Amino acid sequence: MQNRMKHFQLTKEEIDTLLQRADIGRFGTVRGDGYPYVTAMHFLYYNGTIYMHGLPKGLKIDNVKDNPKVCFEVDELLGLQPGEGMACDTEAIYNSVVVIGTAHILEDIPYKREVLNRLVEKYTPQFAGKELPENMVKGTAVIELQIKECTGKYHK
């Protein structure tokens, strides 16, 4: 654990709250050549698990299939506290969460539909409650990230 984490650690409740309200997270996978690949993703934190959706083909899907060990990061910049002497003394006021876990592509169609409906509720609530077409559910990849480790920190 980083030294700062000992003094500036978010509680489990604060971590859950940030994961519930954040709109964008950064999803990190490992490419076939060993290099990391990070992409910004809409996501859902539901039942203690992170879900993301997208096209069923592409680099992040290939990466998950080849190596399910992934990470995920969410942060919020709440402001800047200017230093007294110089710009280098300015400090960021923020909350952040880092997740380490394993990911896989959801195959269970009824559960996939449930997750997609919850994503609709989060991002486009005006369409909540409307039936998702079967071909859209089947044609959308849903990545499920099972959390192994989760830490949160803040600076205020």
Rank of each mutant, 00 (worst) to 15 (best):
L19F: 08
K153C: 00
P133A: 15
E121S: 09
Q126A: 15
R26A: 05
L55C: 09
E73R: 04
R113M: 09
I24F: 09
L77M: 14
T140R: 10
V99A: 02
L116T: 08
G129D: 09
H104Q: 15
G101D: 00
Q146F: 03
F72P: 02
V97W: 04
L132V: 11
F72K: 06
C71Y: 04
E107I: 12
Q20C: 11
G139T: 07
L132K: 10
R31I: 00
G48A: 05
E73V: 07
C150D: 02
V97D: 02
C88G: 05
Y94G: 05
V38Q: 12
D33N: 13
D108M: 09
E144P: 06
P110V: 14
L106M: 15
V97Q: 03
I24V: 15
N117W: 07
D89C: 13
N135R: 10
F27M: 14
L59H: 00
A87K: 10
G101A: 09
K112C: 05
T29D: 13
V98R: 04
R118H: 14
L55E: 13
Q126K: 14
K153Q: 12
K148I: 14
M136T: 14
P133Q: 15
I50Q: 08
F127M: 14
E149T: 07
T140E: 09
K57R: 11
H104D: 15
V115N: 08
I50W: 06
A87I: 11
D62P: 05
K65R: 13
K130F: 10
A40E: 10
D89I: 07
F43Q: 04
V115S: 06
I24T: 14
Y51N: 02
Q20Y: 09
R21N: 11
A141I: 12
L116H: 00
I147N: 01
C71Q: 11
G54A: 12
D23M: 13
C88M: 07
E134C: 07
I105T: 05
V30W: 04
I147E: 04
A92R: 05
Y51W: 13
M86E: 12
V115E: 04
L106R: 06
D108N: 15
V98S: 08
Q81I: 12
V98P: 01
D75F: 05
V64R: 04
Q20N: 15
